[in-house]
Design a protein around this nucleic acid. Structure first.
Lengths: 119, 119
DNA sequence: GTAAAAGCTGACACTGATGTCAGATTCAAG
DNA sequence: CTTGAATCTGACATCAGTGTCAGCTTTTAC
């Protein structure tokens, strides 16, 4: 599929999709004229990339991570190095802390909201 | 207390503390010479500000929110407007979604880590 | 064959909290 | 008084993903 359709289906801008390619996160075939041609799997991949971005991972880390994932059409094409595993574990722990922080913040907000509503 | 001590105690840079003041998040008395002089309460306030920043709130929203909070030394000095309550509710819901996203991301990472460790 | 729609590359702007540096002033202690 | 540490203001830089625009080329539909 073309970049426009992929953008529509994933709700991600064409700009971002090209950026993902530049960062090595998303590969695409090319038509003879040079237009990007994405496989169906690209949809899931873009969603996954967005998810990891939302989790605070940087593109470099995602680029290392993606080849180690079970892909929708087969096993991982690379094995995570111990170094990468350590990095990912650190990220996982960071995410855990972030979640805990967010829960507290949400409770703080709830308190303010309840006080205001009780007025 | 002076800005240096506040920075040390909150683990927030002096730069950021001055920024908070410029954004109307953190007030400080001044010595005759112009140096900032913070009350003890400032410590808690800075921690709270950091927490709200971590939750993704922007300084403008925090500036609106803070006066409506039960302060350590008394009741709120302002009442949340319906508009603000709506905003905060939206933020709270956004945080909820963020938490859900993070949980999924963490699980994704865990999966990769486990696959790698099982090698 | 032609025109409109879609895609391409490359460059620059933006956000928003924070880092950093320079030069001047104030504070605290001897 | 003097000196060194702390603080002041103001300006510019950074990050990293994304927005946006220009100018050109390809694709698609008629």
């Amino acid at each position: 599929m073309r970049i426009g359709e992929l953008a529509r289906r994933t709700n991600v801008s064409e700009r971002s999709l090209r950026y993902y390619e530049a960062q090595g996160l998303l590969a695409a075939d090319r038509t003879p004229g040079g237009h990007r041609d994405y496989p169906e799997r690209a949809v899931d991949r873009v969603v996954l990339i967005q998810e990891l971005f939302a989790a605070g991972l940087h593109s470099t880390k995602i680029a290392q991570l993606l080849p180690c994932m079970r892909d929708s059409d087969g096993g991982p094409s690379a094995v995570a190095t111990p170094r990468l595993v350590a990095d990912l574990t650190a990220e996982r722990d960071r995410i855990d802390r972030t979640i805990a922080d967010l829960v507290r913040s949400r409770d703080t907000l709830d308190e303010v909201i309840q006080v205001a509503e009780g007025t």
